[in-house]
Structures are given as structure tokens and as C-alpha cells.
Nucleic acid binder design. Structure first.
Lengths: 191, 191
DNA sequence: CGCGACGTTGATTTGCCTCAACGATTGTGG
DNA sequence: CCACAATCGTTGAGGCAAATCAACGTCGCG
């Protein structure tokens, strides 16, 4: 399992293999069933997750009771409520497995110890979060630029395979519109 | 100048003061006049900026020719097109001074050398980008949750002083609506 | 088999945009 | 220091994208 993470680290920076062997001890390997919760809004968030296999979504409960999906995470992505993780406060988001999902989980405390032993990992996380933040900048750009219909088309062109993996109502939620409107778009799209 | 940055680093982690004294040599201190460009869309982006004093906005040119503001940066914020910075490719965004602005500028190359000499800074950037990404998660949440009018009210309650600093059309652009609609909201808001 | 979750369809409503015209304010050259 | 232009903000009429609501297929699962 840990080799997936090590391979991922290798894409960003080179770290002494001996040090990388220390990694395993700090992580917990977990398997979540479809629809199981990794994190519940309101609970203290002291973990973050590296998705080895599967798919989860990050969401929160809206005023009107609907679950609003803010993000997905699939293979080789980290996911957590990072604000809550950084400050060890109550989570503002929940995380749920969309399908059976395998993760490597590390607590804030373990991460502190790990980074003390292998400070080189800070470079990995630096580059990783820089990339994630840059991706967020682009996502804002798309949100500004595109109509809902264009958002859907853009997304379906860029991630055609991913669309097969998640139910439409989650996709609609993520893209910021209603399942009804998604139906309408898809109908047009089939011609 | 550099002491502002050093103070900011101190908020995230503790680094040997001797090492921090090395910092100055890697940065260039610059002053931009109001409306001057720090970065132009399409140019190669090999710099990032730490705002010491003033305010800039990050924007891109829409299909219809309008400038779409995606973000602001004020005192103690880093700003760049981080995607382009990370890969040293063409910028997808421009950056312009909203008012007279003082920055510390570092090139990608200098940063590489600096991080080799002071690898502890990777911890700073790790925490910094984690925080920035977490803030982006919250911003997505607001974008999903609020109507345009609520976005405006939320923003004006949280950053009343900032609203005085930027022209309304930039604010409208950032919040994702037209100056005309902003006028309409403000009229209601004055009762 | 039957129930509940998911997807579709159509009628109606609305938040916000577009366009055009008009004040107000700022800045700039003579 | 004024005149004029350009930029910025406001107002109103009309229109459209997308939401809401309600009702009805359909599929997977216990």
C-alpha cells in the first residue's frame, strides 16, 4: 500500500529510500465501504487521507438540508478538511466514500513526528499544496468563465471516465446545479 | 522590508535566525505604481511576490474581453500564477497593482537555491499553501451556498475596511457579478 | 416482488444579465 | 486652475439561464 504513496512522493522530489522506509509506521491502512464516512462535519478533524484506490467526496450540509459536494478525491489525491486539520478544530466538511475506497490515513500528531524524522517531506507537501492551490485557482477561473452547461461539457470532455464512476446527482452538486438541469443538458447533449 | 517576511515566517514555524539572515539576498524589493502590471498573461511566469504593503489583483481576460478578477492579495499574502510558476510556463493570469504596492519578489531559480540553503523554509511553504488551499475550500463553499446578494453581504461584513480600498467594479468582478447588479444590491442595503 | 433511491420531464418562477442612457467623479493637458 | 475627457457608478427595461415544484419512469437491492 505504502508504495503507492512513495511512488507519488517520487513524482515531486527525491528522498533517501532509507528514510522513505520509515513512512509505513506512521500510516494506518483503511478500507471504507461504499457510502461510509471518513469524516463527519462537526467532529474534531485530526486526520488526513491519501486515496490509494477508490473515490470519496467532500461535502457539507446546506441550510436547506441538502448535501453540497465541494470536491472529489480519487487515486493519488490527498483529502481532508485542511483548515480543521491544521488547527485541530471541528470539521466544517464531511467526507464519504463514493465507492469502496482504500486509503492511507495519518493523524496530525503522527505527521508532526514524521516530519521531525523526515523533514524532507515538507518539500513534498510544499509542492503538493502549491499544485492543489494552483488547481483551485484554475477551478475558480472555470466557475467564472463558463455557464452551467459549459461547465458540464468541459468536465465531461476532460474526465469522461470519471463521469462513469459517480452518480449524477453528486456530479450535479459538484458542478453547482440541480439534477433536473443536468438531465436537461444531457438530453441536448445526445444529439 | 525583509523583516515583514521574516515576521510572517515566524507565525508558521521557527527557523534559526542566522539562516533567516540569508533570505534578503534572494529577494528583490520592488515598488509598483497604481495600475502597473506585476505579471502579464501569456508571459513566462518565473516569479512570485510577497506583498509587503498595498494591494494587487489576479485576473485574466475573458472571451468577451472583460477582465475577470479571480483574487486579491494584500499585506502578508503571496501571489503569483502558481501553476505557471511551478512549471515555468506561460502565465494564464495577469497581476496588477490596485494601489501603490510594495513587494518582495523571488524568481523560481532563486527559490530553488534558497531552499537548498535553507530547506527549513519548505515547512513554511507547506503550511502556507495548506492554509491557502483550505481557504480556497471555504471560498468554494461560500460560492455554492450564497446567492450573489448574500455573497456581497458576507464579504462586506467580513472585510468592511477592504471594501474601501478597491473600486466597486473590481469587487463586483471578484464576487462574480456585474457592476450594475452591485449597484442594485447596495441600494437595498442602505435601508 | 416491492420499496426506496435515482433519473427524467414539463410548467412556472426568479435571480441576475444585457443593453442603453445618464450622473458623478477623477484625472489630465493647456 | 479650469475645461474637457475618460473612468466609474447608477437607474431602468427587457430577457434568459437556471431554480423550483410536482409528477412520473426505472432500476437495483433487501
Amino acid at each position: 500500500m505504502i508504495e503507492h504513496l512513495i511512488a507519488h512522493i517520487g513524482k515531486f522530489c527525491t528522498i533517501d529510500p532509507d528514510k522513505l522506509n520509515l513512512l509505513e509506521a506512521f500510516f494506518e491502512h483503511r478500507i471504507y465501504k461504499k457510502k461510509e464516512l471518513l469524516l463527519t462535519e462537526g467532529d474534531r478533524c485530526h486526520e488526513k487521507f491519501f486515496v490509494v484506490k477508490g473515490c470519496v467526496h467532500l461535502f457539507y450540509l446546506r441550510q436547506n438540508g441538502m448535501e453540497q459536494t465541494v470536491d472529489f478525491a480519487i487515486e493519488n489525491w490527498w483529502v481532508s478538511d485542511f483548515m480543521a486539520f491544521q488547527h485541530s478544530t471541528a470539521a466544517q466538511f464531511s467526507i464519504r466514500a463514493v465507492e469502496k475506497t482504500e486509503v492511507l490515513c495519518i493523524t496530525a500528531e503522527h505527521q508532526r513526528k514524521l516530519l521531525k524524522e523526515v523533514p524532507e517531506l515538507n518539500e513534498y507537501f510544499h509542492l503538493l499544496f502549491q499544485k492543489a492551490y494552483a488547481a483551485a485557482q484554475m477551478r475558480f477561473r472555470f466557475l467564472y468563465e463558463f455557464s452551467k452547461e459549459e461547465l458540464y461539457r468541459h468536465f465531461s470532455q476532460h474526465f469522461p471516465d470519471f463521469m462513469q464512476r459517480v452518480p449524477q446527482y453528486l456530479l450535479a452538486s459538484y458542478l453547482g446545479f440541480t439534477p433536473e438541469y443536468l438531465s436537461e443538458i444531457r438530453k441536448k447533449y445526445l444529439s
